[in-house]
Amino acid sequence: ELREAFAKVDTDGNGYISFNELNDLFKAACLPLPGYRVREITENLMATGDLDQDGRISFDEFIKIFHGLKSTDVAKTFRKAINK
């Protein structure tokens, strides 16, 4: 299930999730959020999830993000976006 969610976000299939891919995910989900809020959520996920600070999120980092977000608003938003 997590591998499928990761693949859905990794639209270019390079094995990593970029800032733009995350941002595009939230935009495509048509969530009722202003653009600046989408950017804040994306920046927050990148800042906390990109553990090796290479500017992208690997599958291992994605798993840690996903499990670390349990019930936060960001987690709910992220799950809604993935499930669209």
Rank of each mutant, 00 (worst) to 15 (best):
T72G: 13
T48G: 11
G15T: 01
L33K: 04
V9H: 03
T72L: 08
R37Y: 04
L25I: 04
L45C: 05
T48E: 12
I65S: 03
T77K: 14
F78N: 15
F6E: 01
V38A: 06
V9G: 01
D12Q: 08
E4D: 07
G49Y: 11
G68I: 11
T48I: 05
R39C: 04
K84V: 12
K76P: 14
P32W: 03
K84N: 12
F19Q: 06
G15D: 02
Q53K: 13
L51T: 10
E4R: 06
E43M: 06
E1G: 04
D12Y: 05
L69V: 12
V38M: 10
S71A: 13
D54K: 11
L2E: 01
L22W: 01
L22E: 00
K76I: 04
K70M: 15
N83S: 11
N83M: 04
K27W: 01
A29Y: 09
N20Q: 11
R39G: 04
R37I: 11
L51Q: 06
L31M: 15
E21H: 10
N83Y: 06
T77S: 13
F59Y: 11
S71C: 10
R37M: 11
I17F: 01
F6M: 00
R79F: 08
M46E: 09
E1R: 15
G15Q: 02
N44H: 13
I41H: 02
D10M: 02
V38C: 06
G15K: 01
Y16P: 00
Y16E: 03
I17Y: 01
T72F: 11
D24M: 09
L33Q: 12
N44K: 13
L69N: 07
T77I: 08
A5V: 02
G68D: 14
K64C: 03
G13C: 06
I57K: 00
G13S: 05
R39T: 09
F19T: 11
G68T: 13
Y36G: 12
F66L: 15
L31I: 14
F19V: 15
K84T: 14
N83C: 11
V38Y: 06
F78A: 15
D52C: 14
K76V: 10
I65A: 13
A5H: 03
P32T: 07
E61I: 09
L45G: 02
I65T: 03
D50G: 11
I63M: 13
P32I: 03
V38I: 14
R37C: 09
R79S: 15
V9C: 01
L69T: 07
E4A: 10
T11I: 06
E40L: 03
D50R: 11
G68H: 15
R56D: 04
E40N: 02
K64W: 02
K70R: 10
S71W: 04
K64Y: 03
Y36E: 15
L69H: 06
E21F: 04
K84C: 11
R39H: 08
F78H: 15
L33T: 07
E40A: 06
I65Q: 03
S18G: 08
P34R: 03
R56L: 09
H67N: 15
M46L: 11
C30F: 05
T42N: 04
A29D: 07
F66E: 02
T77E: 13
I57A: 00
E40D: 06
S71G: 10
A75D: 14
S18L: 09
I63F: 06
L45T: 03
L25R: 00
L25K: 00
G15I: 00
D54A: 12
D60P: 11
E40V: 02
I17W: 00
K76D: 12
A81D: 15
Q53E: 12
N83L: 06
R79M: 10
V38G: 03
R56F: 08
A5C: 03
E21Y: 01
F62G: 00
D52I: 05
D52A: 15
R79P: 15
K27P: 01
S58K: 05
L31Q: 10
L45I: 08
K80N: 10
E43Y: 04
V38F: 08
R79W: 06
D73P: 11
L33H: 08
F6K: 00
I17P: 00
D60I: 01
H67D: 14
K8R: 06
E40I: 01
F66N: 02
T11H: 08
K8G: 05
A75Y: 07
N23Y: 10
A29H: 06
L45D: 03
A81S: 13
E40T: 04
N83R: 11
N83V: 11
S71I: 14
T11S: 10
L69F: 08
K76F: 09
H67T: 10
N20W: 04
N23T: 13
Q53F: 08
E43F: 02
G35K: 13
G13E: 03
K76A: 12
K27L: 05
D50V: 07
F78R: 15
I57E: 00
N20C: 07
T48P: 04
F78L: 10
K76M: 12
A7Y: 02
S58H: 06
G13A: 04
L31N: 12
